[in-house]
Every structure is written in structure tokens, then in C-alpha cells.
Amino acid sequence: MDQTCDPTAERIAEGLGFSCRHANPIVTFRNPFSLSNGTMPVLELLIVGGAVFAFWHAWRRWRHDGDPANLTLWFASVAYLAVIEPPLYFPGWFGLDKQVGFIFSHNVFTVQFMYDRLPLYIVAFYPALSQLAYELVRTLGVFARRGALVGALAVAFVCQVFYEIFDQLGPQLRWWAWNPGDTKVNKPALASVPMNSMFLFASVSFAALTYLVVRLTSTSPSASTGGFGVAWRSVIAGALAPLAMLIAGAPAGAFQGHGHLTIQTTIISIGLAIVWIIGLALIVDSWRAPRTHAAPAPAPAPPPTPAPAPLFARTYPAIYLATLAALWLVALPAYFTATNGVTSAGTPIGSLWYATLCAAAATGVILAARRTTR
């Protein structure tokens, strides 16, 4: 059997409008104006541009401020992708076809790698989102007040709310397609999105990455300011982060199968609820912190002004949120006319209520970050 395009992969790809047969094993380029729909190049520009912006910001933090955490996190996110994504695309290569099966397939975008399985924008998505969440949490002062572990938990929440606005929309707009026949990983689901993905990929992975990076760059900062220090810490953090996903996914994974969907749903829902409760508590704490700790200066001189938030933290999260909101507006007509969770174009819809809740929380995080440095 062809491990790069088995019958299941071919069926999912055909549903997206392309064939995985005879795909280039390295890279394929396409006209961005000839993709499946007009939302796809917009998404690419948002995410790839965000990753470039994040790299510029991380480089400045490293070279101008002497803080290697941002740049280490940027590269650690790419290292994490290199570890986690290939087994998802080609489980047969790694002997995982019986354990996980074929989970999903991306659609073909302007630049595509690895037999058309890996779009460039997905490579960019990890560093763009990890930097977005880390900078917002850092700007809120959570790391400074609470330390690496609590700061990483706040990152888990921020990633959840920004990621799921995107995650709940993608299948309807044919950015990717989940394999409905894979009940080991893709069930249970919230609308069309597997809850395992919502919890493990949208929160646990980013929290683990952030914690490892912050710990590795803070234990010996003088040794990590050089390029070699950034490189090896990035590789270690990216390689170890999937272990946290295995640990966090073990309770629900112990009850795989149709007969235990209710138990799995309960376990994952509790995990998501914990992410929300901790995250909201930390955001509220950050919102109140400037008032709580702002005491009148005893001297005639005015109290020191908080440092302004970096340009990246002030602009990109809002651009990301506004662009995804606009793409959701494009999708809403077909969403409201869907029958049994499927649009007239044959694509599954996500959860509008959860995406709306995430958008409201993301807006609150942005406002809190701006207030903190006002």
C-alpha cells in the first residue's frame, strides 16, 4: 500500500478538491488566486505575515533587550511541528496506523510541503500563535508576578481562545478536513472539531512549549543569549513538548471506543473547563493588578510609567482577531442554512457559540494587556 496516499487519504483529499496521487515529495507552488476559495490566501497572508512579524519582534527582544525567550520559543515551535506533524500525516511510516489511523488532511495552499500534506501557513502558524500568546501574557505581567508554571497556564488559555476561533471555522471553509471514520482520535467532537484537538493541540502543547522555554532560558540566561544557546534550547523544548500531550491525553485515551464517548467527553470537558477557569482568573488578576499595586508616590516626583507594550503585542493579536471575525462573517450564510451540521457545499460546520465565546475572551485579553501598559 502507498503510505503517502492510501485510499482513506485519497478519499479525504478528493473531498477537498484535489488528489494526493503523484504529489511532489518536497514542495509544490500554486497560484494563490487559483485556490479552492478566496479565504485561503487571506488566511495565508494573516498567518505567514504574523510569523514574520513575530520573528522580527523576537529578534529585537534578543538583540536589543538581551532576552532570548521569544526567539527560543519561535524556533521551539517549529521544532515541535517537525516532531508532531509527520506522524499525523503519515501514521503508516511510524507504525501508528493501528493506534491513531488517518486523522485529517490539509487542503492545498500556495506553498505545500511533504507530498502536499503540510502547507507553509501551518509551519508559520505555530510560531505566530505561540508568540502572540506569550507576548500577551508577558505584557500582562503574569510571568513576572507568578512565575513560569502559572504563566504557561495563562498561555494555555490565551492559545485556546485564539486557536479555536480558527479551528472551529477551518472545516467549513475547506482549509482542512477531518476523517470522520477515525473514532480513536476524532471522537468525541464539538460540532466538527475533535475535542482531543481542542484540548491537547490548542492548549496543552503551547503551555508545555512555553514552560520549557521559559525555564530553559531563565535558569542560565548568560549562557542562552548566544545563537548556540537559543538553538539547543529550542530543539529540547520542541522535542519534549509532545510528552506533555501524551500525559494530559492519557485519562481520556484510556477510554477509547464508541462505548466510552460519554466518559471521554466528560474528561476532556473537565480539562477544558480547568483551562478556562485558571485562565480567566489570571486575566482578572492581571486586570486588577495595576490598581492593587499602584500606591501614591511619597516623593513629589511622579511614579514611573509602565513600559509600553511591544508593537507586536499591540497590533498583531487585534489584526488576527479582526481577520478571523471577517472570515467567520463570510461563512455565516452557509452556516445558518446548514442541515444536520453540513452546509449545502457538503462541508461540516464548527461550533459558533464556542467560537463566539472564544472571541469575547480574546477581546478581553487584548483589552487587559492594553490597560496594563497604559
Rank of each mutant, 00 (worst) to 15 (best):
Q131C: 14
S34E: 10
L43T: 03
G341T: 11
S205G: 10
P300M: 07
A250R: 11
W328E: 05
W93Q: 15
A23C: 10
C358F: 12
Y316N: 02
Y335A: 11
Q264A: 07
G253I: 09
V83I: 06
Y163H: 15
I267Y: 02
Q256P: 04
A237P: 02
P86H: 01
L324R: 01
K184V: 15
W232L: 09
I267G: 03
Q112K: 00
L272D: 01
R314D: 01
F162V: 08
F90V: 09
A248R: 02
N340A: 15
L169E: 12
M114H: 09
A369Q: 04
L212R: 05
R233I: 03
L352P: 09
F53V: 00
V42D: 00
F75W: 15
S351Y: 06
T262M: 15
A368C: 13
A23W: 01
F199I: 03
V27W: 12
G95E: 13
M198N: 14
G346M: 09
A154T: 01
L200C: 06
G341Q: 11
I12Y: 03
A152K: 02
L132S: 06
N37M: 03
L282C: 00
W287S: 08
K187L: 14
L96Q: 06
N196Y: 14
L324F: 08
F53W: 07
V111L: 11
A207E: 07
L118N: 04
A148Q: 09
A191L: 01
A133R: 04
M195S: 07
L209Y: 09
V108I: 12
L149W: 13
I165K: 04
L329T: 13
K187I: 10
Y126S: 05
R145S: 11
K98H: 15
A231Q: 03
A325R: 01
L118Y: 07
A128G: 10
T110G: 05
F199C: 07
G249Y: 02
G229M: 08
N70S: 15
L169R: 11
A326H: 01
S224H: 10
G249S: 04
P300Y: 06
A338S: 15
E44G: 00
T337P: 05
D65N: 12
A207D: 06
A239M: 04
A369P: 03
I84Y: 07
P348C: 08
F53L: 04
H22L: 06
D97W: 08
S286P: 01
V142E: 05
W276I: 12
V137P: 04
G350H: 06
W175V: 06
P87W: 00
C358N: 15
Q256I: 13
T8K: 14
N196A: 14
Q256L: 14
V284T: 10
A334D: 14
E14G: 14
T373G: 10
L216M: 14
A154G: 08
S286Q: 02
L16S: 09
T262I: 14
